[in-house]
């Protein structure tokens, strides 16, 4: 599936819930079920600055595509990261760089994107793209 097809899929999943509480419950579930990151990547080098909760994000490049693993000490944040990974993991650097992440707005997480909110969703997106740009420049 393309990045946009997965975004549309997420938007549809969230549209099943009208109540914000259910949406957050879904994020909590996603956070709890996110695959574990290798503990050796939970170091300062992979910590994303600018988050009120800690987020570690590790990129792995197989020569063609980048995959990400991540963790956070806050569950909702982890749920949001899980969504980002679902959309952007296993993509070529070019796909990641040119992606337009409209799903965040559409599922009602836009407020989390505000730079003043400092929960770092913006910092996470930026970091993912920076990794992609760095890898793209090397290849």
């Amino acid at each position: 599936m393309t990045i946009n097809q997965i975004q549309d899929e997420i938007i549809e999943e969230f549209s099943l819930f009208e109540d914000w509480m259910d949406k957050y419950n879904l994020l909590i579930d996603l956070g709890k079920n996110m695959p574990l990151i290798d503990p050796r990547f939970k170091i300062k080098e992979y910590l994303i600055e600018g988050c009120q909760s800690k987020v570690w994000l590790h990129p792995e490049f197989d020569g063609e595509k980048i995959s990400f693993t991540a963790d956070s000490d806050a569950i909702i944040t982890k749920g949001i990261v899980a969504l980002l990974i679902r959309v952007l993991s296993d993509r070529t650097p070019q796909e990641i760089i040119s992606s337009d992440l409209y799903f965040i707005d559409r599922i009602g997480l836009r407020q989390n994107l505000s730079p003043t909110r400092s929960n770092g969703l913006l910092a996470m997106v930026r970091q993912i793209k920076l990794y992609a740009i760095a890898i793209d420049a090397k290849t």
């Binding site: 914000w20 909590i28 009120q52 909760s53 806050a74 944040t77």
Partner: peptide, 21 residues
């Protein structure tokens, strides 16, 4: 067992303004 930021986000949705961090 609950991160302050998670708790703050949920309380916010209930109309309760607290500070976390």
């Amino acid at each position: 067992g609950i991160h302050q930021y998670d708790a703050g986000m949920i309380l916010d949705k209930m109309g309760i303004a607290v500070r976390t961090g």
